[in-house]
Design a binder for these strands. Structure first.
Lengths: 208, 208
DNA sequence: CAGCCCTGTGTACATTCGTACACATAAGCG
DNA sequence: CGCTTATGTGTACGAATGTACACAGGGCTG
């Protein structure tokens, strides 16, 4: 009797994933979310959840996949906008921060997941970061800014860069999105971190 | 009628805090722990919880305080054992890893708390890290290894070091405590990160 | 058009949760 | 000794949770 029109396929699934992200965006930790809570936020009946996910961990894994897309978009934009090596670091950090602001919940989920309770999610996020670092290493190789480094040392440098930026996430997500002053401070600090790392790379001599 | 002998004061409180840590050590996330769960693990009736803590966040805050003690102990040991600057980094990293292994649950709690859901716990852990970084900066100043840096740049360097080491935590806590090979890899990688940072610091010229 | 699958709903239930309350015992203190 | 305070236990209950099951309707394929 209740008339339901057919919605776009996968709509509820999206609603559920967005609901989880929304809750994460509201200071809630993903590990503490429940199925009922998420479906409530999504405006859907609890049992609908099982049509798309086996449990919350499963939903988390699918969020990691989407996170990968977000990161790739960010990488593409950075590649397009950072043309000359001059302001490379400043611009990259700025792009990162702007993406982190625009996808706050996603990045919160990422920061949480690094020490989350699902081993699979943890490994998924770690893997995304590794991929990101290896792409960064490729870009650096291509730009020939640090020509004297071995591949291995370049990988290490890229890894350290990605970690430092990722850690800045926890700073960024700890302040209000409107607090431009604090965000500017974080941007400056992150930039200096990366500059310090690159100075290190420029003067690095492989051990042995 | 049930005869209870008086235990050491604060014993139950310790049991509860240890119970929470134990659960965190078992891949559980602190944010997902419940009062009943913790009291069950502690072998105590649920209502006892309220004799010592207002809620789980409160317990978390008190754990942060204890975490401070653990960190201070580690710092003291590092200061005592790292006498000559020669192997400073290697030894410090080794001491860190050994402490992280010995207090695995504590450090897991710390890694989780950085992106946890209680703002107060988050801020507490961040504050411990700031303190740690400032102590490290003092030590570096005292050792006069990086004499040309301004105080501000030295603080930045120490901050980056602490962050890098903290991030290594998530690596470390992701592998089995018995997997000596992987742990060795993490130790080497962390060591090289710090070396890279110090090379950067040694060649750093303050902007402006 | 008939049938099936996919997706969403409603109901149901045992389990778990947080917490309130009353009570018991031991310690400290006058 | 008697009183207060701190700490622990037992019972209780309303609310929330995960999930099982039966059902409904639209879309696709035959």
């Amino acid at each position: 009797m209740v008339e339901k029109q057919r919605r776009r396929p996968g709509e509820t699934r999206e609603k559920l994933m967005n609901a989880a992200l929304t809750l994460v965006g509201k200071e809630r930790h993903f590990a503490s979310l429940g199925i009922r809570e998420v479906t409530r936020q999504a405006g859907v009946v609890p049992t609908s959840f099982y049509r798309h996910f086996r449990n919350m961990d499963d939903l988390g894994l699918q969020l990691v996949d989407e996170l990968g897309l977000v990161l790739r978009r960010m990488m593409r934009e950075a590649r397009a906008n950072v043309l000359q090596a001059d302001k490379l670091i400043e611009e990259s950090v700025a792009i990162f921060i702007s993406h982190a602001q625009a996808n706050r919940s996603f990045f919160m989920f990422m920061a949480q997941g690094l020490a989350g309770e699902s081993r699979a999610v943890q490994e998924g996020i770690r893997s995304e970061m590794r991929f990101f670092a290896s792409e960064l290493a490729n870009d650096l190789r291509r730009l020939r800014l640090v020509d004297h480094l071995t591949d291995q040392d370049l990988d290490m440098t890229a890894d350290l860069v990605v970690r430092s930026v990722a850690f800045s996430l926890t700073d960024l997500l700890g302040v209000s999105p409107d607090d431009d002053y604090q965000i500017g401070q974080i941007r400056k600090r992150t930039t200096r971190f990366l500059q310090l790392i690159f100075v290190g790379a420029a003067n690095w001599k492989s051990p042995g």
